[in-house]
Design a protein around this nucleic acid. Structure first.
Lengths: 326, 326
DNA sequence: CTGTTAGCGCTTTCAA
DNA sequence: TTGAAAGCGCTAACAG
């Protein structure tokens, strides 16, 4: 920087002003140009660390996710990235052991988004202090502000769709770790069931791993229960793939023998066989909103918890139909 | 930090030594403990920016990818994250306009991995200077060192499998932007074809978008060509989903009427209907190796371009069979 | 084994 | 409109 200043025949403070977009244009255009030329000639790039140290601002936002291969988090990240970019921030995504990453990001970012498993009381999350944090796609009162989708309403709409088709034994696949998202969906499912006066025997819920095999195994097991459910409410595209594979293996036809509704975290459901009836999840919007809230937090404003209020959109495709006769 | 020093009754430099794991234990255990206690009491956390400024090291590695929703990049990121973590670095993943992100990461990381589209001469990538950069899953001589998988051999193995089954009209789906990865696969495909003395009429290659719809459209078009190919070589899981949907729509049976081999970027192929014959891509290993190479680059060592030499592994499932009689 | 010192590269009052 | 000067919080010689 002093090289630039020397070459332009000015002081470093002037260079700084030029770079930081003169507040109130207090640099003569001619000087300004000279500095710009010098920067260009020297290929000068400001030292971010020094700037961070001086301003105590990083102009970066962190996002901690459990797994890069998770489609939901990818969608959230896409939304967050766009909004952050618009605000002049760079979104830095880190994955791995939540607490460790959160700590490592401290000092490198102005605010932290985290979309991680939080429900496990055996592994409580300790947030770094002195930096705004926002929980995404989860709500845990003790963890501060959060943004979530309308999971409960979505699950209710999906369940209602199956009920409207005449289903009575509707099973619900839930992930096998305590997760707020799953709880809210379960609530919506239960509400629809009880509104319709339908019983929910315990064998209609099942927990399993988050990948295709999880969906496969859970479906296999559900299909062996008596009485067999006639419809499945499924949380992810990967589960749905596993569920369809299980049906295929057992010769269970979808939708003739079994209807399936899935929450849509990727566009893939449309291309499954049969094409999946889905409820869209406002994942990108969640990323956008999360960044907006975090930006406000960074500016020391208060934020209230947000639940996205887009109405759940059900797209009926080929995987749902009236149940088979008993 | 000076608070900690004061509370522990030592100088800040001692605090620094304690924090940075005394080289050669030159702090008395007792003093050390006092400092540790003070740190704990005060909840002190070192200022990363100051440390970066002083040491000109960030202990972070950047990874720039075009899209968080791309499964291949996710796998690469997973491998890279693990290796970076083992080395005491944090992996920071950014997505978006490559050049912009690369520039924004400059100064925040000690080295840069980038796995982006590079083949478009209309938008040449300008790398930031003064920081080690490594191209991942692409090879462009003018862009410096790179790590790639054995795409050519993989494509050859996949094609050979189809040839061995008796196929002669094997079509190849290629992405519609110039991409080195695709070129290398095409080379393997062509080699297998020509080794077998098979012609490759131009109508057996087709380019399209990277998502499911791309695979769907391309397959639809290929299936309308005369003579119709009897086998497809497909680059991604998403394309394969689209291809299967297209076959389904046209009443083309897989594998009786059409065989499909796909490169596997996710485990999903196993759960498709029919289960997909796939060739595994060493994506995680690529991430691991990329970090190892970058670490060497950061230490000012030389690195040579790497092509992963794991032998391509073909997993035969239900989507390939001998071609239908002519 | 511990303290002193200088300075990393920048921004930002304040004075000229 | 520009320059001078201080200092952000830390690390790393070097001296004690």
């Amino acid at each position: 920087m002093s090289d630039v200043a020397a070459l332009a025949g000015v002081d470093t403070s002037v260079v700084s002003r030029v770079i930081n977009g003169d507040e109130r244009l207090l640099v003569r255009p001619e000087t300004r140009q000279r500095v710009l030329d010098a920067i260009d000639r020297l290929g000068y790039r400001p030292n971010i660390a020094a700037r961070m140290l001086k301003t105590s601002r990083t102009m970066a936002i962190g996002l901690v996710i459990p797994d890069f291969a998770n489609a939901s988090h990818a969608q959230i990240a896409i939304g967050a990235e766009q909004r952050a970019n618009d605000a002049g921030y760079i979104l830095l995504v880190a994955s791995g052991a939540a607490e460790h990453r959160l700590a490592q990001l401290h000092g490198r970012v102005d605010g932290l988004l985290y979309a991680i498993a939080t429900g496990d009381p055996a592994a409580p999350v300790q947030l770094p202090e002195g930096i705004p944090c926002l929980l995404v796609n989860r709500r845990e009162p003790h963890l501060g502000p959060s943004v979530i989708g309308n999971d409960e309403a979505s699950a209710e709409v999906a369940t209602q769709h199956l009920i409207d088709l005449g289903h009575r034994r509707i099973a619900h696949l839930v992930v096998n770790v305590p997760l707020d998202t799953g709880n809210r969906r379960t609530a919506g499912y239960l509400r629809a069931m009880s509104n319709a006066g339908l019983p929910v025997p315990p064998e209609l819920g099942i927990t399993t791993d988050v990948d295709e095999i999880g969906g496969y195994k859970a479906t296999l097991e559900l299909l062996h229960r008596e009485p067999r459910p006639t419809a499945l409410l499924i949380a992810t595209s990967r589960w749905a793939m596993g569920a369809l594979a299980a049906c295929d293996e057992l010769g269970v036809r979808v939708p003739e023998d079994l209807s399936i509704v899935a929450f849509s975290d990727t566009p893939i459901g449309e291309f499954m066989h049969p094409a999946l009836t889905t409820v869209e999840l406002p994942l990108r919007a969640m990323g956008v909103t999360a960044v907006e809230m975090l930006l406000r937090l960074i500016d020391d404003e208060d934020v209230a918890d947000v639940e996205l209020d887009e109405l759940p959109r059900l797209t009926q495709r080929a995987s749902t139909a009236p149940p088979p006769p008993d």
